[in-house]
Nucleic acid binder design. Structure first.
Lengths: 172, 172
DNA sequence: ACAAATTAAATGTATCTACATTAAATGTTG
DNA sequence: CAACATTTAATGTAGATACATTTAATTTGT
């Protein structure tokens, strides 16, 4: 169904608005489908995301900080997510040897086994979505990457302002 | 930046996984930018969404139910969102004349004035994103609409099962 | 017409998120 | 080296979300 039918909105203030709304709507839809698949395993989507990050480390530990950087939803609290996963025995904490502020997080065997089970679930999930052609997937990825590209530009220009402020206050 | 760099993940289990993750990541990014723009006006994104839906009604009231159907995030509680908006004087409740279970919601003048102010903010937000070509926006919309399309298929087949269950129990 | 089923909205609740603050360890600079 | 700033993770909290339940009104089936 077209996005204008999904949300029963015929007019958008701009083509960009329509695209933005479509992306957000589709992501909510995907999140819902995903969460439902994970529910039987008593895992939230952010928790699953953390486990996937840890598995990707292939044995190397990841600090709470590095997990946050790589999470899809930066606003989830990685520290508390790790708490929950540790309570379930899916991850282990250990003090980072070269920086005692940091905490190394490792996925446990139990965590790996759970992920292995979930892989099938996700595969099944993917198959149901397999209506897109390789070209279409490539196109979406390229365009979304392009859409986000100005982010760094903005941050960069803000940094410049910050620096010049510092200089000014330094002079004053 | 490419999605694999954003989340520092070089390998995906499938091209579809990569696409799904890109959509969710981009939507989170957009949500964050959006929320930041709305913050100065003490509005959450779902609250803004509800106001936009009500304005689109052009004077006709909308029930809580119809708002839920049209919201981007179906899981937000429209009833409580309306509560919040009413407390701010941005919407009004009134009993639906032809169904006393339902409640008609209308946007107030104050709500319309606030939205008018926000229009400029959103326009500015859009302009910063205006790096996409019309073709690219069209392509994203088409592909995302296609991605969601099998949803109704699944629901339809479930309905069929339900119906046949009814028939069976009816016979027994 | 009446009992049962369904629908609309509100509410109860546990959990999660957003944001600020804290506490400890490390970096930086005079 | 000592004072200050920064970084890392944890925690406190108000508010939001997810999900189940409740209450009232309407619809359906007999």
């Amino acid at each position: 169904m077209k996005i204008e039918d999904e949300i029963q909105q015929k007019e958008f203030s701009s083509p960009m608005q329509k695209t933005v709304i479509n992306i957000i709507f589709t992501a909510n839809w995907l999140n819902l489908k995903f969460s439902q698949a994970l529910k039987h395993y008593d895992l939230s989507l952010p928790q699953y995301n953390v486990l996937r990050i840890l598995r990707g480390q292939k044995g190397c530990p990841a600090t709470v900080n590095s997990i946050t950087e790589r999470m899809l939803d930066k606003s989830s609290n990685a520290s508390r997510l790790v708490d929950k996963l540790k309570a379930k025995g899916l991850v282990d904490r250990r003090e980072c040897p070269n920086d005692r502020r940091a905490v190394d997080i490792l996925i446990t065997d139990k965590g790996l086994i759970l992920l292995k089970e979930l892989d099938k679930e996700i595969l099944h999930f993917d198959e149901k979505l397999q209506k897109l052609e390789p070209d279409e997937m490539r196109a979406v990825n390229e365009i979304l990457d392009k859409l986000r590209q100005n982010d760094t530009d903005i941050e960069k220009s803000e940094d410049v302002i910050k620096v010049s402020n510092k200089e000014v206050t330094g002079v004053v």
